[in-house]
């Protein structure tokens, strides 16, 4: 297994919403913006481990549902006064399917 793998149809993810992919290293949140951009980050807020996939998506940012920390989906960096970052994963859309770069799975299991 290498490279990008098919995760779901783009339409499985609501606009301005997210769905979760379960992996051995924890859940990854796949976000879809109002204009159909797709981003993937760890589904875990660095503050108190809130599930970011359940946050409100606005523009290309998400607000954590537990304590309202805001992250830029594209950079994984927190926005505003709080400091923090979440890990990003490469993801792309082809022919209406969402493909996730599963390289990280390989690296971890090889190690």
């Amino acid at each position: 297994m290498n490279g990008f793998i098919d995760i779901a149809a783009l339409d499985d993810i609501p606009r301005q919403g997210a769905r979760v992919v379960k992996t051995p290293q924890g859940c990854i949140a796949i976000f879809r913006t109002a204009d159909d951009q797709v981003f993937a980050i760890d589904d875990r807020c660095p503050h108190k481990a809130g599930p970011l996939s359940e946050g409100i998506v606005h523009g290309t940012s998400v607000t954590c549902p537990l304590h309202a920390m805001v992250f830029d989906l594209a950079t994984g960096l927190s926005v505003g006064a709080d400091e923090g970052a979440v890990r990003r994963y490469a993801v792309r859309v082809e022919a209406g399917r969402v493909l996730l770069d599963a390289e990280f799975l390989l690296r971890r299991s090889a190690a």
């Binding site: 297994m1 793998i5 995760i7 779901a8 499985d12 993810i13 769905r19 979760v20 992919v21 379960k22 992996t23 051995p24 859940c27 796949i30 996730l100 599963a102 799975l105 971890r108 299991s109």
Partner: peptide, 12 residues
């Protein structure tokens, strides 16, 4: 539910 489960794939 999660939209995909990669925990099994990794074990392959």
């Amino acid at each position: 539910a999660p939209v995909a489960d990669l925990t099994l794939r990794a074990a392959e």
